[in-house]
Amino acid sequence: MKIAAAAYPMEFLDGWAAYEDKIARWVAEAAGAGAELLVFPEYGAMELATLAGAAAAGDLERSARAVSERMGEATALHARLAQAHGVHILAASGPVFDPALGARPVNRAHFVAPSGAMGHQDKAIMTRFEREDWAIAPGGPLRLFDTALGRIGVLICYDAEYPLLARALIEAGAEILLVPSCTERRPGYWRVRIGAMARALEGQCVTVMASTVGDAPWSEAVDTNTGAGGVFGPPDTGFPETGVLAAGTLDRPSWTVAEVDPAAIAHVRADGVVLNMTHWAEQPARAGTVERLALR
């Protein structure tokens, strides 16, 4: 199958029709390239705040509420496009006020299938900006999506830097991990990319990183964006020696498309040069006690 990871430019939109047209064009382009799974980035949905005007888009609290109010319509749009093109889409995440989870918004990405089935994944661990400035809250549990393309998990940006989150999804059966991201500068991009590549190594799986790109001076939350699309696997049997199946050009809006063979994931897990996924279980016994020696 082919997987497409977006390097998605943030734009100030002059109305819902502009948003609808933009998403439709992006989905059509990826589907036209043969992609069956499309991954949009973290906080790409912040564009929806511009539909409430510049003052709302430029205020952290008002922009979060404006996006949340439009998220249902945006998800329905992605669902229609998924059905029309016969593709699976992880839509761009954004703040959602969910009364079941508390008073503060969560960072939520919706996943839609061509059948019309859908679900969502909330970010688990907040960055300092999300905690200290924006008060975005941790969301619901990790979810494994059992799809026609395979078993898929989602780790939103910072979550990909934590191996135990990925391990929980791997142990539940995940073969592909989607990593929508939003990073301001190159160090942030590389932190998430290195995390995504490490999770592919540890879990002997495929990880897919999507990014926001470009300046958005109208937003306090996503004013500067640096990133690229990328698809990664373990540097082992059946995969490139670098582990990089495809990597986009930094900060250039585009889809990065890679062909992924699900059988290669099963094969490397069963008979790779190394068996990271299987040998993970040996760690607790080795790490349970640390002997301290004085060599001064």
Results as ranks from 00 to 15, higher is better:
residue 44 G to E: 09
residue 19 Y to R: 05
residue 68 S to A: 09
residue 97 F to L: 07
residue 59 D to H: 06
residue 279 H to L: 13
residue 296 R to A: 15
residue 61 E to K: 12
residue 58 G to K: 13
residue 52 A to M: 06
residue 230 G to S: 10
residue 293 L to K: 14
residue 235 P to S: 09
residue 189 Y to Q: 11
residue 100 A to F: 05
residue 243 G to I: 08
residue 245 L to I: 13
residue 250 L to T: 01
residue 180 P to A: 12
residue 7 A to F: 01
residue 127 T to C: 10
residue 228 A to V: 04
residue 171 E to T: 09
residue 53 G to Y: 04
residue 101 L to N: 06
residue 7 A to G: 01
residue 28 A to V: 03
residue 126 M to V: 04
residue 131 R to G: 08
residue 280 W to L: 07
residue 155 L to I: 06
residue 233 G to H: 04
residue 43 Y to A: 08
residue 22 K to T: 08
residue 129 F to C: 08
residue 63 S to G: 03
residue 14 D to W: 04
residue 79 A to S: 10
residue 229 G to M: 01
residue 179 V to D: 02
residue 215 D to S: 13
residue 6 A to S: 08
residue 93 S to W: 02
residue 98 D to I: 04
residue 128 R to W: 12
residue 116 G to S: 11
residue 37 L to H: 02
residue 281 A to Y: 09
residue 77 L to V: 03
residue 199 R to M: 15
residue 193 R to G: 02
residue 66 A to Q: 00
residue 47 E to C: 05
residue 187 P to M: 12
residue 98 D to A: 09
residue 153 G to P: 00
residue 213 V to W: 00
residue 44 G to T: 07
residue 171 E to D: 10
residue 168 A to K: 04
residue 216 A to N: 02
residue 34 G to M: 03
residue 103 A to M: 10
residue 221 A to F: 10
residue 28 A to Q: 09
residue 289 T to D: 11
residue 124 A to I: 10
residue 201 L to H: 10
residue 162 Y to K: 15
residue 61 E to C: 12
residue 134 W to K: 11
residue 12 F to I: 12
residue 142 L to K: 02
residue 294 A to R: 14
residue 282 E to G: 13
residue 149 L to M: 05
residue 52 A to G: 03
residue 25 R to W: 07
residue 94 G to C: 09
residue 42 E to Y: 06
residue 175 E to K: 10
residue 46 M to T: 08
residue 165 L to N: 01
residue 13 L to D: 03
residue 221 A to R: 03
residue 291 E to N: 13
residue 5 A to N: 01
residue 192 V to R: 02
residue 242 T to N: 14
residue 153 G to S: 04
residue 3 I to K: 00
residue 290 V to Y: 08
residue 175 E to N: 14
residue 286 R to S: 14
residue 268 V to I: 07
residue 70 R to Q: 13
residue 94 G to N: 02
residue 100 A to T: 12
residue 177 L to T: 01
residue 143 R to Q: 13
residue 159 D to T: 10
residue 15 G to C: 06
residue 209 M to N: 07
residue 39 V to M: 08
residue 292 R to N: 15
residue 159 D to S: 08
residue 33 A to D: 11
residue 214 G to C: 06
residue 36 E to M: 05
residue 132 E to W: 06
residue 189 Y to F: 11
residue 32 G to W: 06
residue 93 S to R: 03
residue 101 L to A: 07
